[in-house]
């Protein structure tokens, strides 16, 4: 039975991948900084509570000798300070890559993000994988996303013996993932920028889990956008999510968010505004053509579920 190691296994996406892998005939182990609740249905999994930056993590890889590694251990929020976030994401990934090369891992799947391209007015509507990673131009707080991606791309070419797939999924929604876009859309009153309504793509967390596992099973090598069922304008997403859009002029919004973020009163830095102003949409032509992947959740399904969960939480 092939063995799969999942980093960041206790997170929402990690649990989904772990369960899917276990039911698809993999022996599953995982690492996370936080302890993980066992699956209620008894799906077998070995979890090590360990920090990627600690010596003990290398011991885990040496001891487990996984055939495949899925790398999901990233800090995506801003509750930790930026320097620590950067260190965990970039230095942590570097260590993981070293261990993969050293301990004979044959397949690595890194879950990067389509945010790496950045949201810029001159973006084409469907960016392909060779498009430059521009996110740090307008949103330097998340430059670690582009740096991790670049680090892994270099590894992909330097270590052909480790088949490496870098996935760049779009906005991911679902019951278990905690994404910035999910938090944004869950607000009762959703601020947006007056006069801007970019197209946005959404992917369901279960489809992302399937995309990750498909990449492992198909021994995928390369860089792939994962785009989900399609694109809708921001205002449709807000309405479908059950919120009320509050368009505010940018001149007021940007400095206000800057101040609130500095005071710790708003969860994302003002650079994130560009993602509700300009498009950051991608083509997943390559991923679909290479793997035959089709998302099972339609946009309608994703948002119906989102609204349902929101009403359940409110009740």
């Amino acid at each position: 039975m092939p063995k799969i190691l999942i980093t960041g296994v206790a997170g929402g996406q990690g649990r989904l991948v772990a369960r899917l892998a276990a039911t698809s005939g993999f022996e599953v182990c995982g690492v996370d900084r936080e302890p993980m609740m066992a699956f209620s249905d008894g799906t077998p999994i070995r979890v090590y509570v360990v920090d990627l930056m600690r010596r003990k993590f290398e011991d885990v890889v040496r001891h487990e000798r996984p055939d495949a590694v899925v790398h999901l251990a990233f800090v995506r929020h801003f509750r930790t300070d930026l320097a620590t976030r950067h260190k965990i994401n970039v230095a942590g990934t570097k260590l993981l890559l070293d261990y993969c090369a050293e301990y004979g891992v044959r397949q690595l799947v890194v879950v990067s993000s389509a945010y790496a391209y950045g949201a810029l007015p001159e973006n084409p509507s469907y960016m392909h994988e060779d498009f430059p990673l521009n996110v740090s131009r307008t949103y330097p707080e998340v430059r670690d996303i582009a740096e991790v991606d670049t680090l892994c791309s270099a590894f992909l070419w330097q270590h052909p013996e480790v088949r490496t797939a870098i996935l760049r999924p779009v906005n991911t929604l679902g019951d278990s993932v905690h994404s910035a876009i999910g938090t944004y859309l869950k607000q009762r009153f959703v601020p947006s920028i007056l006069g801007f309504d970019p197209m946005m793509q959404f992917l369901h967390e279960e489809d992302l889990a399937r995309a990750i596992l498909t990449s492992v099973e198909r021994k995928l090598r390369g860089i792939f956008n994962v785009a989900g069922p399609g694109a809708i304008p921001l205002h449709v997403a807000i309405e479908e999510a059950g919120g009320t859009q509050v368009p505010l002029p940018e001149v007021a919004l940007r400095p206000t968010l800057q101040r609130l973020f500095r005071l710790g009163l708003y969860p994302v830095p003002p650079g994130a505004i560009d993602f509700i102003k300009f498009p950051c949409t991608v083509s997943d032509e390559q991923f679909r053509a290479t793997t035959g992947f089709q998302p099972q959740w339609t946009l309608r399904d994703i948002f119906t579920r989102f609204r349902h969960e929101r009403e359940r939480a409110a009740a």
Binding site: P121, P124, F196, M199
Partner: peptide, 19 residues
């Protein structure tokens, strides 16, 4: 503001070679 969005709704796209 407004102009870009309006353009998209009536079928125009950012003038990049890829588009």
């Amino acid at each position: 503001p407004f102009i870009g969005t309006f353009g998209s709704r009536i079928g125009s796209v950012a003038g990049t070679p890829q588009n």
